[in-house]
Nucleic acid binder design. Structure first.
Lengths: 220, 220
DNA sequence: CGCGTAATTGAAGTCGCTCAATTGTTGTGG
DNA sequence: CCACAACAATTGAGCGACTTCAATTACGCG
C-alpha cells in the first residue's frame, strides 16, 4: 500500500454529485471513508432502482467495464480516497493479493444483492421498510455490532430514495414509517434521525421469521 | 486443465434434485454442461425467491463460504462436470489465472442480479413476464445471438417457478402468458414450449424503452 | 384408464398506487 | 429575525393491479 499512497488523493463530495455516470467508466477507484454512496440503475422511462449502497470502508469502482450501465451518486456528504485507475490495474497484474481482495468484496456484494432480491420479490411494504431500517442500523450506527439492543442513526436517503430502494412509492414509505412510530417501534425526529429502542421488535417486522398470516402453514 | 481432467467426474441430475443445501457448503465445484440450475433463497415462512439461473456453460459453486444461505436445485435435467473442492482451491492458490476467471464470472453474476433487481423493483407484471421470456430466449435457444429475429425454447421453470423468479403469483404469470398469446406475441404448445416469432415485439413489452403511460414525461 | 400435479380461468378482496392537498423543513435574502 | 421560496414529508380519498380463493381443465405417467 505504500506505493499506492503516493498516488492517492482525497475528496469530499456533496450529496447528489454523480460519481459514475451512466454508460461511463469511472476514471479511478476509491475507498469510501465516510458517508454513503448509492448505486442505481434506471429504465429509460425514468423508473429507477437502487441496486446497492456503499458504506465506509467499502470499495468503489468498476473493476472491468461491466456491460450494464450503472450509476453512482453521493447519497450523503461523502469523503473518498481515490486512486488512478491505471495504477490499480497495474498492481492487480503484479499482485494476486489485490485481485483476491477484490473477489472477496465482489462476492459480498453479490450476496447483498441477492438478499435484497428476496426483500424486493417476497416481502410486503411494511416488511420492506422495517428491513431497510434494520439494514441501515447495522451499517451506520457507530458500528455497533449485531448484538446491539438499540440504535440511533440518520437515514442516508430521503423518502423518495428509500422508495427507489424498496420498489414502493414514497407515500407508502412514509405511511409505514409513521405506523412504526405509532406502534412505538421507532422514534423520529428531524424526519431523518431515527431511534430504535428495541432492535428485536424491529426484526420481528422484517418478515420471514413467522408465517405471514395468523394461521398454520400446514393445514389438514 | 489437463491436470484437472484427471479428477473431474460427470453427473446427470434430474429436476428437483438439490445441489447445494441451505446453510451447507457444496462439496465440489461444477460446470453446467446442459440444463438449467436455479438458485433460490427463502424466508423461514416459506416464501422464496429465485436469485439466479445457471445455464451452460456457467460455473457452479460457492467459492468461499458465503455468510448467507443459498439453495441450488436442478430446474431441468442437468448434466454437470464436477471437480473436488480441494483440488480447485489448491489450484487457485497457485495460479492467479483461475481466480481471475472466477472474478470475471462473479462480476457477471452481480451484473445479472442487479439487472433483475430493476425488474423486481420497477416493472409491472406484464413487463416482468415479457422480460423473463426474453431472458430465457437469449440463454436457451440454441445460442442464437441477440440479433435473432425469432426464438423457440422450452421454459426451464413451471408457472410457480416463474412466479418465484418474478415476485408475482403463478396465476398472474399464467394470465400474462395467455395475454401475450392472445396478442400474438408468443405461441404456446405443451405449456412449456414457447415460440416467439418476432422478438422485437416481445422486447417492446419489457418496459423501460418508452414512457409507461401515453403521456409525455415532462409536462408544463 | 385414472390418478396427481400443473395450468387456466373466474370472482371477490386488498394492498399499494395515484392524485391531490396540507404541513413541515431548510436555506436565502430583506 | 422574519418572510419567503423551494423542496421534502405527511396525510387523505379513491382507484386499480395484483392477490387470494376456488373451481375447472389440461397434461404426464403409472
Amino acid at each position: 500500500m505504500a506505493k499506492l499512497a503516493k498516488t492517492s488523493s482525497r475528496h469530499s463530495v456533496e450529496p447528489g454529485v454523480e460519481l459514475i455516470g451512466d454508460a461511463e467508466t469511472l476514471n479511478s477507484y476509491s475507498n469510501v471513508l465516510s458517508g454513503v454512496v448509492k448505486l442505481t440503475k434506471s429504465l429509460s422511462d425514468g423508473r429507477q432502482q437502487i441496486v446497492g449502497l456503499r458504506f465506509a470502508p467499502d470499495f468503489l469502482g468498476q473493476p472491468f467495464k461491466a456491460k450494464s450501465a450503472i450509476h453512482a451518486e453521493a447519497a450523503t456528504t461523502v469523503s473518498l480516497c481515490s486512486f488512478p485507475k491505471a495504477a490499480i490495474e497495474q498492481m492487480m497484474k503484479q499482485s494476486p493479493e489485490l485481485e483476491h481482495r477484490l473477489l472477496r468484496q465482489t462476492l459480498n456484494e453479490l450476496d447483498e444483492a441477492r438478499e435484497w432480491m428476496v426483500t424486493l420479490g417476497c416481502k410486503t411494504a411494511p416488511e420492506k421498510v422495517a428491513s431497510f431500517l434494520l439494514m441501515i442500523a447495522r451499517n451506520i450506527d457507530s458500528g455497533v455490532g449485531p448484538a446491539a439492543r438499540s440504535a440511533r442513526f440518520d437515514l442516508p436517503l430521503t423518502r423518495a430514495g428509500i422508495s427507489d430502494f424498496l420498489g414502493i412509492t414514497n407515500e407508502t414509505v412514509s405511511r409505514q414509517l409513521t405506523r412504526l412510530r405509532m406502534d412505538g417501534v421507532i422514534r423520529i425526529e428531524n424526519s431523518r434521525r431515527v431511534t430504535v429502542d428495541d432492535i428485536s421488535r424491529l426484526e420481528q417486522r422484517c418478515g420471514g421469521r413467522w408465517p405471514r398470516r395468523n394461521r398454520p402453514i400446514y393445514e389438514t
